[in-house]
Each structure stands twice: as structure tokens, then as C-alpha cells.
């Protein structure tokens, strides 16, 4: 019986280990490649670099604009996440706690918009920003990111607000607190973990976003990481600067890894709940 158990354990572990290898190896290959010279990459894709030098990172950061793009991405990620909360918290509260005509309709409008492919709206969005003279503008891009995630954020916040006991609000009313005070001083602090969950997921999507940035940004100095990486890839192909490209990929991934290691629980919970919706 024991032998069977060990054997079946082994039979299950082999596929698990193989898949772990398939996930980890490309990432490891990328990190190691970032420290190699081009000659080393071509000589053997497998070997470790002779010495770890950071030249590729410096080249990517300064000569290929990854530094600027990194700062731009930080900007749109932070501003986009913040704006999204500013728009979503009051609406989520009103939809969850207030009774009024049209409550259901508004909620369903937000939720059903999540089903519609965003591709459909790109062309009009491009011309809208062109007319408003907001193309190539990181503030506008942040606003668009924020708005694109309003329905998802409302959805997450509503589920957290449902757990806030109504008695707290009633007690605050008796103490003479107005609805604005209740919303910002009582309810908002109590749904902190919902706010964190939604914000982390929003921030990751904004950090990783590529296509809207590609369409709505034009100058190289305005590029966010996704677009800059794609450009770096094209240049690296002509110049065979593979090490630099790997370094650029690392720069884009490292913040996500840090985020993941700190907020793993929030991310997993938020994403699985978001999928169930």
C-alpha cells in the first residue's frame, strides 16, 4: 500500500514538476540572458554568463528609452488606479446602499459593459481624443484606463460593502453625521481590503496594458513600457542586441514580481472572484 502511494505520488509529481519547469525556465533564461553579452548568447543559449554585468540594463534604460517608459508607466498606473477609486467608491456605495429608481438599471449597465469587446470602441476613442487634443497625453491615458476599469472596481467594491453592518451607518446618523461623512469616514475605511484588492488588480492591468497605449500615444518620450518594449524588440532585431532586450523584459517584469510576492493573496482572491462574477 505504501509503495503504491509513493508511486502514485511520483506519477502525479512528474507532470507537476514538468509544468513548473516549463513556467520557470523561460523566466530564468530571460534573467540570465539579461546579464550576457551578445557573443555569449549566440555561443550557447544555456550557459551562465562569465561575469554578471549590468551593462545591458544601463543600455536598455538610457539608450532605448526604457527608463522614460518605466517612469511613464508608473505615472499612468498610479494616476489611473487613483482615479478609478475616486469614480468607483461613491457609485458603488450608492448602488449598494441607497434605494432609488433606476438603481438596477445603472448597475446592469456597468456590469453588461464588461461583456462588450473593447476593440469595438478603439476607433471612436482615438478620434474623440484627437478632437479634444488629448492624443499623446499621459493624463488622458490614465483617465481612460481608470474609466475602463470602473465596472470591475464597482463590482468588487459592492461585494465588500455588502458586508459592512448597516447598524454602523445608523449609529453614525444618530450622532448627526451626514451621508458624505458616512461614506468617506465610516464605509470607505471599512472596505479597505476591497479597495486594496481592486487597486492591485487595476494597477497590474494598467502596468501591463499595451494596445490602447499603442493607439493613443505617439511620441517616443511618451511611451509606456508595453509600447517601448515592442519598439525595443524591433530595434534589437536589426541590431541583434538580444542582451539589452532581455534586460528590458526584466525591467518590465521585476515590479510585477515584487507586487506578486507582497500581495499574492489579494491578487489571487481578486482575480478568481472577478472571473466568477
Amino acid at each position: 500500500m505504501n509503495i503504491i502511494r509513493t508511486l502514485s505520488g511520483l506519477a502525479v509529481r512528474i507532470p507537476l514538476l514538468i509544468w513548473s519547469f516549463i513556467v520557470i525556465f523561460p523566466l530564468l533564461w530571460m534573467f540570465i540572458g539579461a546579464f550576457k553579452t551578445n557573443a555569449e548568447i549566440f555561443a550557447s543559449p544555456w550557459a551562465l554568463p562569465e561575469k554578471f554585468n549590468f551593462q545591458n540594463f544601463l543600455t536598455a534604460w538610457t539608450d532605448y528609452n526604457i527608463g522614460t517608459a518605466f517612469v511613464n508607466s508608473m505615472f499612468v498606473t498610479a494616476l489611473g488606479s487613483l482615479l478609478c477609486l475616486v469614480f468607483s467608491i461613491p457609485t458603488a456605495y450608492a448602488l449598494e446602499r441607497m434605494r432609488f429608481k433606476g438603481n438596477e438599471i445603472i448597475l446592469n449597465t456597468y456590469l453588461s459593459s464588461m461583456m462588450i469587446p473593447s476593440v469595438l470602441g478603439w476607433i471612436p476613442l482615438f478620434f474623440l481624443l484627437l478632437k479634444l487634443n488629448l492624443l499623446d497625453n499621459l493624463w488622458a491615458l490614465s483617465l481612460i484606463y481608470a474609466v475602463s476599469h470602473i465596472p470591475f472596481t464597482i463590482f468588487i467594491l459592492i461585494s465588500f460593502m455588502g458586508n459592512v453592518p448597516k447598524e454602523l451607518e445608523e449609529a453614525a446618523t444618530i450622532d448627526g453625521m451626514g451621508p458624505y461623512g458616512i461614506l468617506f469616514k465610516i464605509v470607505t475605511p471599512l472596505v479597505k481590503s476591497g479597495i486594496i484588492t481592486a487597486t492591485i488588480l487595476n494597477a497590474i492591468s494598467f502596468w501591463n496594458e499595451y494596445f490602447l497605449a499603442l493607439i493613443l500615444l505617439q511620441q517616443e518620450s511618451k511611451n509606456t513600457l508595453g509600447v517601448a518594449m515592442d519598439l525595443l524588440k524591433t530595434n534589437a532585431k536589426y541590431e541583434s542586441a538580444w542582451g539589452v532586450l532581455f534586460a528590458g523584459l526584466c525591467i518590465a517584469v521585476i515590479p510585477v514580481i515584487i507586487f506578486y510576492s507582497v500581495f499574492q493573496r489579494h491578487i489571487v482572491k481578486g482575480m478568481t472572484e472577478g472571473a466568477i462574477k
Binding site: 469614480f87 468607483s88 461613491p90 457609485t91 456605495y93 450608492a94 448602488l95 441607497m98 432609488f100 445603472i106 456597468y110 459593459s113 462588450i116 469595438l120 470602441g121 478603439w122 476607433i123 471612436p124 476613442l125 478620434f127 474623440l128 483617465l143 481612460i144 474609466v147 475602463s148 470602473i150 451621508p179 458624505y180 461614506l183
Partner: peptide
Amino acid sequence: FLTFCLLPTFIVFCIFTVYPMIGGL
């Protein structure tokens, strides 16, 4: 209070999500 909570969000949502989708059609 309801207007304060709902209207600004709904306006930006209409401009940057609803309008582009209808515009696409």
C-alpha cells in the same frame, strides 16, 4: 447626495466607454 455619487462617474463612463461603443457601430 445621489447625484454627487453617481453623476460624475456616469458622465465619464458615457464619454469614454458608451460613446466609443455606439460610435463603433
